[in-house]
Simulated assay, not measured.
Amino acid sequence: MLSENELIQIRRHLHQIPELALQEQQTSDYLKQIIQAMPQTNLQFRTIPELPTGLLVRVQGSAPQRTIGFRADMDGLPVTEQTQLAFSSQHAGIMHACGHDIHMTVALGILDYFAANQPRDNLLFFFQPAEESECGAKIAYESQLFTGDFCPDEFYALHDTPDLDAGVIGCRLGTLFAGSIEIDADFYGQGGHAAYPQRANDMVVAAAEFINQVQTVVARNVDPIEGGVITFGKFEAGTIRNVIAGQAHLEGTIRGLTQKMLEHIKQRLQALGQGIAQSFEARVELQFDQGGYWPVENNLELTQQFITYMQKESTIKYQTTRPAMTGEDFGFLLAQFPGTMFWLGVGPTGSLHSATFNPDEAAISAGVQAVTKFLSYRMGE
């Protein structure tokens, strides 16, 4: 079985070879190399053309009553590392700044244990490409990856966090991560000379009024207990100071803790767009793109069981956490399969997605042990 030191060395190697979404070939090859060194008696592999860098590994159970899935994401971020570590990224401008190297290593440790100690139930390990972008979870599901013997009855996944001490498990009932929808808004009117505004139809004013009215959606249309966020981070219009802009373009994001809330906010924005179009005699086009970034809504029954076990197990440190407005495409899988996502603390360091993110590697062994114990408990072993 893989020792703690071996797991750390695996993580460090993965940290040096980060790759962007759908380009994780070197990472995939290395994962296969590690997995092929494990006992193969009960292992079965599956890949699909739509996600050639992804890897699905099934462990045959001794007396299976269910198939339990565990996901680990693989891709890095377009971030230039500034940790000065001896094992820093060797790929210029790319870094495992979200800790997916930790995620993969923990999954390998769990898989290694059950490859050597046959579980009672079937286990399914999904090493998933393209979590940070391109919605790898959605691609996998829509490509019929989870069918037949490779269909999980329930799914689990973790995400590392610097907000918890190394090795601490964090979770909550309900939503762990918000869902997100990208929105593009285009406004079409009539350009003209700044000295003759009556002859033009100013889309800077129309777009600005739209932004102002959007602020009322969260303030007056969203239940304050549920929460929501609408942010427009990009506004493009005009060419020169003395020409009235006949077009304007906005780019933003919507975030909500439930899919129902996201759909409600989307409908309100569509209504506001129609109102602006009518009042400004303009054409307003809104485009929404959610992809696979649905809210991570934990299954009530399975999550309660997970939390109860983590709280009672004396060797595990557990903490109840608050929901986060960050996005995660595991939410799409939880909309298809019951399951639970939880946090693994990696101690204080730079924030997720930062160039100085440097997790405490003591979290790896702690994560492997906690999840291995829970899965054994879940299988009634």
Rank of each mutant, 00 (worst) to 15 (best):
A185Y: 07
A107C: 11
L262N: 06
L108Q: 06
E301N: 09
L300D: 11
V296K: 00
L55V: 11
A194Y: 00
N5H: 13
H159N: 08
P359F: 01
P129K: 05
F45A: 09
G256K: 03
L257F: 08
S28I: 06
E154V: 15
D121L: 04
A37V: 03
I316R: 04
Y293V: 03
I265W: 01
P52Q: 00
G227N: 06
L85R: 00
P224R: 06
E381A: 10
Q290V: 01
L43I: 10
D184L: 13
I17A: 13
M310L: 11
D73N: 13
H353G: 05
A282W: 08
V296T: 14
Y113F: 14
G367E: 11
Q287K: 13
L300K: 07
Q33A: 12
G54W: 07
T320K: 11
F332P: 05
Q118K: 14
E297A: 03
Y196V: 05
F155L: 15
A200D: 06
K32T: 09
I225K: 13
A245P: 02
E236Q: 08
H91T: 10
N221C: 01
F288T: 04
G380H: 12
S88Y: 04
G275Y: 06
E142T: 09
G345K: 10
E236F: 06
I68P: 04
G273T: 05
L14H: 05
F155N: 00
I265V: 00
A137P: 09
Q25S: 15
S133F: 12
A200M: 06
A237K: 06
R199T: 12
I211W: 07
A107V: 08
E4S: 13
S133T: 15
D153K: 07
E154F: 10
M310T: 07
A370M: 12
M325W: 14
F306R: 01
A115C: 01
G93P: 11
L344N: 06
A185E: 05
Q144G: 10
Q267I: 02
